[in-house]
Computed example of a mutant assay.
Amino acid sequence: MEKIRTLLDRFVQAFSCLLFVIMVVVATWQVVSRYVFNSPSTISEAFLRLSLVWLSMMAIAYVAGRREHVSLTLLTGNLSGAWKRFFDIFIELLFIAFAGFVMIYGGAQATSNTMAQVYPMLNVPKGIIYLSLPVSGAIIVVYCLMNCFKLYSDCQYYTRRQVS
């Protein structure tokens, strides 16, 4: 399980870092072309908009995998032991439900509905933007399932330790 998490972490990190570096280069080119050559690039702004959506969605997936997302700490902050683990697993299951229904299902619908439309500046299908939803949603589901298994196995470990 840890090997899968490590591979997924490295993939998301590498993709996000590479995309961020490309965005910095493209934004720098946008500034140089506008102020030095007095001929602004029209493609760069559209590319940055598309890239920012992808970068944001991948970052959301990574943060969900690390369990550093915003969660219901008002309830779980004062709990300990089995109740805390129960609510932690419940929150992960809520994330799975959200990612499954809204991001994967809804994102797949939005992607398929907009693949025929062309993003005029880049001359690519608009569905490419919406494709970030099901991709990041699938990554979130995988991460959350791994988090649930880890929380459950930790709970089993502590329960066995307390009994013996």
Results as ranks from 00 to 15, higher is better:
Phe95Arg: 04
Ile96Tyr: 04
Ile96Asn: 03
Ala97Met: 14
Ala97Ile: 15
Phe98Pro: 00
Ala99Pro: 11
Ala99Ser: 15
Ala99Cys: 11
Gly100Ala: 14
Gly100Val: 06
Gly100Trp: 05
Val102Gln: 01
Met103Ala: 09
Met103Asp: 05
Met103Asn: 03
Met103Glu: 03
Tyr105Asp: 03
Tyr105Val: 15
Gly106Asp: 05
Gly106Pro: 06
Gly106Ile: 11
Gly107Glu: 01
Ala108Leu: 15
Ala108Phe: 14
Ala110Ser: 06
Ala110Glu: 03
Ala110Gly: 05
Thr111Ala: 02
Thr111Phe: 12
Thr111Lys: 02
Thr111Pro: 04
Thr111Glu: 01
Thr111His: 02
Thr111Leu: 04
Ser112Cys: 02
Ser112Asp: 06
Asn113Met: 13
Asn113Arg: 11
Asn113Leu: 15
Asn113Glu: 14
Asn113Gly: 02
Met115Asn: 02
Met115Ser: 01
Met115Lys: 00
Ala116Pro: 01
Val118Gly: 03
Val118Ser: 04
Val118Met: 10
Tyr119Pro: 00
Tyr119Asn: 09
Tyr119Gln: 14
Pro120Thr: 12
Pro120Gly: 10
Met121Arg: 13
Met121Ile: 01
Met121Pro: 15
Leu122Lys: 02
Asn123Gln: 14
Val124Arg: 00
Pro125Gly: 11
Pro125His: 11
Pro125Tyr: 13
Pro125Ile: 13
Pro125Lys: 13
Lys126Ser: 01
Lys126Trp: 02
Lys126Tyr: 11
Gly127Ala: 07
Gly127Val: 07
